[in-house]
Computed example of a mutant assay.
Amino acid sequence: MSLESVRAFLAERAPDVEILELAVSTATVALAAEAHGVEPGRIAKTLSLRFGEKVVLIVARGDARLDNRKLKTAFGVKAKMLGPDEVLELTGHPVGGVCPFGLATPLPVYCDVSLRAFDEVVPAAGSVHSAVRINTLRMAEIVGATWVDVCQELVQEAVHVAETA
């Protein structure tokens, strides 16, 4: 059902985007990166978070980690990750296949600025065996995402900044 809701969503909003279905699991960033032949950062992971009574999705680069201080500043309260059952119920997608497309419940979607390092990203497509390759800005546009800065700075970026300063 989940893959079908993504298929219907993309048919309406981005009919040229092809869903890639694989025989191997892409349920983790490492598995997805290996299966798609890309670096882990290019995997667009979708995280389901609760801020008080509000549930949101945050899409970030695969090798990024959330920064609790930035999250609290952006949303006003401490974040809590949703459990697998609640994720499935609210998004319609199983953990490992969660994406911002074809959601069972309309949820606000936020894209972390870390994704802007890539022109194309590979988010899941509603199952642990499916994904899409999509332009980063287009993905944010078709899901109505708001851009936020809620991830920790990556170590290699910090080193690069220090070297060029």
Results as ranks from 00 to 15, higher is better:
M1P: 08
E4N: 13
V6G: 04
V6L: 05
A8S: 12
A8T: 11
A8W: 01
L10M: 07
A11S: 14
A14E: 13
A14N: 07
A14H: 12
I19T: 03
I19F: 01
L22N: 01
T26N: 01
L31W: 05
A32D: 05
A32H: 08
A35E: 12
G37D: 06
V38R: 08
V38H: 06
P40C: 03
I43M: 07
I43C: 03
K45H: 12
L47W: 08
L47N: 08
L49M: 09
R50I: 05
F51V: 10
F51K: 01
G52I: 06
E53G: 05
E53W: 07
K54W: 04
K54V: 11
V59G: 11
A60Y: 02
R61P: 03
R61H: 05
A64H: 01
A64W: 02
L66T: 12
N68E: 15
N68D: 15
N68H: 11
R69D: 14
L71H: 10
L71C: 11
K72C: 03
T73S: 14
T73I: 14
F75I: 13
G76W: 14
G76C: 13
V77N: 05
K80I: 09
K80E: 15
M81H: 12
P84R: 13
D85C: 02
E86G: 09
E86K: 15
E89K: 15
E89F: 08
L90Y: 11
T91H: 12
T91R: 11
P94L: 11
V95H: 01
V95D: 00
V95P: 04
G96Y: 05
G97N: 05
C99V: 04
P100R: 10
P100G: 13
G102S: 06
P106F: 13
P106E: 15
P108A: 15
V109Q: 11
V109Y: 06
V109I: 14
V109W: 00
Y110Q: 04
D112F: 09
D112L: 06
V113N: 00
A117R: 14
D119H: 14
E120T: 15
E120D: 12
V121L: 09
V121P: 02
A124I: 02
A125V: 08
S127H: 00
A131Q: 11
V132M: 00
I134H: 04
I134Y: 08
N135C: 09
L137T: 06
R138C: 07
A140T: 09
I142P: 06
A145M: 07
T146V: 15
W147D: 11
W147G: 07
D149Q: 09
V150D: 04
V150P: 00
Q152F: 01
E153G: 11
V155W: 08
V155N: 01
E157C: 07
H160P: 00
H160V: 00
V161H: 11
V161C: 03
A162V: 10
E163A: 12
T164W: 04
A165F: 13
